[in-house]
């Protein structure tokens, strides 16, 4: 599996593989099959593929119905539509009814790029985090994506995954294992903890840690792929160890990763915290590099925040 493999290809391939051994797996699209890269799922399992057209609310409701007769539907659309346009249907028909629907929001945050502000969700993770009992996660590379899709399929209950469609990364080794709700320590450190989620920000956090290392700053990096339920134990452990955190998310800092970490720290082990993410703004059009700088979703900004928090720590 190469670094260049698109995440959507891993999504498609993993579901085809899962569907071969589990006839309950079905796949749903809302007129974005080509964008989600699920064309070969459709050709492999045409009777288990449903394109619902440009009608996301109905897709969520139909997914709930499929789940109620024992199917495991994975339903995808662009993240703002998979969340904002399905919210009540996913909330009531799927989650409140204790069913088993796997909602997938593609192109989260700035990865919507030239689709611009209408398609740029900085709030989908927060909306989803508000749903009782929902598991919300965002894989950062192809290995964890594949493994976490398998975990989500095994898990009996609804999940929401933020899926980066284009581009990929290799952070993990093929034989690494993952658990929903358990963060992964990618790099140990003693001065400050960088907690990141997703394809864009885990890579930036690792780069920031390299930068900081050159200055003699020891930064731990945690891949918090599951934002809900958040790994409280791991956060407390690193609060004890470093006492200082920078959260890194391709999302509003409100109600997603930064908020979740802040809640744990305040309740369990107060520590210093800065939140790198979108600061209460809407999205806008542009290429990824422009948007990273525009919203401060960069290794440089993470490192700046880490330095600032260390200054604060010394005071």
């Amino acid at each position: 599996m190469g670094k260049e493999k698109d995440m959507r290809a891993t999504y498609n391939d993993t579901l085809i593989d899962l569907a071969a051994s589990d006839e309950r797996i079905v796949l749903m699209e809302a007129d974005l099959m080509n964008a989600s890269g699920t064309v070969t799922f459709k050709s492999t399992y045409p009777e288990r593929f449903f394109d619902m057209g440009v009608a996301e609310a109905n897709m969520a409701g139909v997914a709930a119905g499929l789940s109620s007769v024992g199917k495991i539907p994975f339903a995808a659309s662009f993240a703002p539509f998979a969340s904002r346009k399905t919210y009540d249907q996913f909330f009531i028909s799927a989650n409140y009814a204790h069913l088993n629907v796997k909602m997938v929001g593609t192109d989260p945050g700035i990865t919507a790029q030239v689709n611009g502000g209408t398609h740029m969700s900085f709030e989908d993770g927060g909306l989803m985090r508000n749903i009782p009992g929902l598991v919300v996660f965002e894989p950062c590379d192809n290995v964890s994506l594949e493994k976490l899709i398998r975990k989500a399929a095994e898990y009996e209950g609804c999940t929401y995954m933020r899926l980066h469609r284009k581009g990929g990364n290799i952070i993990y080794k093929e034989d690494d294992e993952f658990e929903l709700g358990k963060g992964v320590v990618l790099r140990d450190g003693s001065d400050v903890t960088l907690v990141a989620t997703g394809l864009v920000m885990v890579a930036e956090a690792l780069e920031a840690a390299d930068e900081l290392k050159k200055e003699g700053i020891s930064a731990a990096v945690i891949d918090m792929h599951t934002v809900k339920p958040i790994d409280r134990e791991l956060i407390v452990k690193y609060a004890q160890k470093t006492g200082a955190f920078v959260t890194c998310e391709n999302h509003q800092v409100v109600n997603f990763l930064g908020s979740a970490v802040a809640e744990v720290l305040v309740e369990e082990h107060p520590a210093l915290l800065k939140r790198v993410g979108v600061q209460d703004e809407f999205g806008e059009v542009g290429k990824l590099d422009y948007l990273k700088k525009r919203y401060g979703l960069t290794a440089a900004n993470i490192a700046d925040n880490a330095r600032a928090i260390l200054t604060q720590k010394k005071q």
Binding site: F50, A57, N58, A60, G61, V62, A63, A64, G65, L66, S67, S68, V69, G70, K71, P73, D88, Q89, F91, I92, S93, Y96, A97, H98
Partner: peptide, 28 residues
Amino acid sequence: DMVRTPGIDMTAGSLGQGLSAGIGKALG
């Protein structure tokens, strides 16, 4: 509410949602 009541096949109450669920069941 299908979670609470024996014999209820689907939770409903936020209007507009039941027909979609019915489609899911019919497809399944």
